[in-house]
Design a protein around this nucleic acid. Sequence first.
DNA 1: TCTGGGGTCCTAGGACCC
DNA 2: TCTGGGGTCCTAGGACCC
Length: 435
Amino acid sequence: MSAPAARPHPPLTRYALVDVDSCFAACERVLHPGLVGRPVVVLSNNDGCVIARSQEAKALGVAMGTPWFRIATWADRHGVVARSSNYELYGSLSRRIMEILGEYTAFLQVYSIDEAFLLLRGTLPELLGTARRIRARILHDLGMPVSVGIAPTRTLAKLATHGAKHTPALGGVASTDCYSPEQLRAILATTPIGDLWGVGRRLEKRLRARHLQTALDLSLADPHRLRSRFGLGVARTALELRGVPCVEIGSRDAARTGQVMFSRSFSTPVTTSSEMHQVLSVYAQNVTRRLRAQGSEAGSVWAFAATSWYVQPVHQIADAVAVQPRTDDPVTVLRAALGLILPRMIPEKRYVRAGISLGDLAPAGRQPVLEPFAVDPRGSQVGALIDEVNAVAGKPVIGLGYAALPSPPDWQMRREMRSNRGTTHWDELTTVRAG
DNA sequence: TCTGGGGTCCTAGGACCC
DNA sequence: TCTGGGGTCCTAGGACCC
C-alpha cells in the first residue's frame, strides 16, 4: 500500500508583521510628492536630532540620532530635506493603515505607529497572496510602501520583515516557510545577535562575552541556562527562533496603561521659577487633556525638571505626591507639580527638560468621595471646558494661568520645518492645481 | 548656542503575613 | 525566647522597543 500523497501545502497559522518602510519620511511624501526620490530626514522635537530617514538619506550615510546642528550645513549641500516631526499627520495616516489591516484579520495587534502584527491562517501560497494584496492596497490607497514578514513567531516575523526590506527581489514580502531548514540555519548564522528583536546594546555585549555571536548560536543554546544567566526575555527569544511562540506583546497604544506622561525639552534653558511655573502650567494642561481623552483619573502626580545630560554633573529634581481623591483637574495637578518642583530649584542651574506623569489611574467617576473630602465638585469641569473651546478654535486660544500666552514663550518647543497637518486641519489642506 | 518622548516588561529587594 | 520557609504585594531601577 502506497503512502498517501503528501499535501503540498498544508494550512498554516502564522504571524505577519506589516511594517511601513521609512514611515515618517513616507508620510511626508504623501502630501508632498516632490520629495519622492530625494533624501528626507525627520527631526525630533526642538529639531534636535534625526529620528527618521528615507532610503536616500540612509544611502548618504545619515545616522539615526545624529544631532541636526552638526550636519545641517552638510545636509544642505547634499540636497537633504529636513522636516520637523509632525505626529498629527503620522498618527492620522497610521490609523488609516491599521483600519485597512483590520480588514484582513480578526487578530490585529498594533505594535507601534508603523508596525502591526496580524494572525493569518492559510496555505503558504494563500499567505503570500494576502501579504501582497495588503502591500498593493496600502500603496494604492495611501501611497505608503510597506514590507511584510511571515513566520510562526513574532521574533522570526521581525527577521523576515528585515529580509523583505533588504532584498529587492522578494518584492517586499518574505516568509520563513519559503526556506528549507538548512537555508534557515544559514540565515540565522549570518544574523548578528545584536540585530535580534529584544537584544539591545547591553545584552549584545553580555551575550557576545559568552560566545553567543549570531542568532543561530542563541537558537542552539539551552533555554534554561539562558534564563538563569540572562533572564526570561533572552530565553524566550531563543525559543522563538526555534519556532516556539512565547513572546507576548503589550499594545503600545497608551490609552489603557496605568500611566500618562507629558514631558518635553525646552528650546532654550529655563532658569527662573516664574518661567518654570509657565512650563508646568502648559504641561499640566497637556497631560490632563490626555487623561480626560482616555476617560481616566489619576491618584498620583510625579514631576521632574533636569539640566542637560551634556553638562555634568546633571542636576535633577524629581518627586511624586498622592492626590486624594483621584482627579483629572489641571488646577489640582498643576498645584501638586509646582509644590514638587519650584521649592527645590537652584537659582543658577539651567533646566532644559521637565515633565509631569500621572499614575495610579482609574476610570473616571468610579471612586466614591466621602462628603467631608469633596472639595470642589465643579472643579473638574475646568479642564474639559478648556479642551472644548480649544478644539472648536483649532488651536490653543484659552488656557490656565500662563498656559495661553498670546505669543509663544522663549522656551517653547521649536518646530521650524513642520509640514502641514493636511489630513486633520481644514486650514492646512493640501492644494492641488490642475496642470 | 543647538543632542527625543513615551511606553512595556522583568528583576531584585523589602515589608508583611502565615 | 528563638528559629524557619514560603507566600504576596509593592517599588525602584534596568533593559528594551519604536
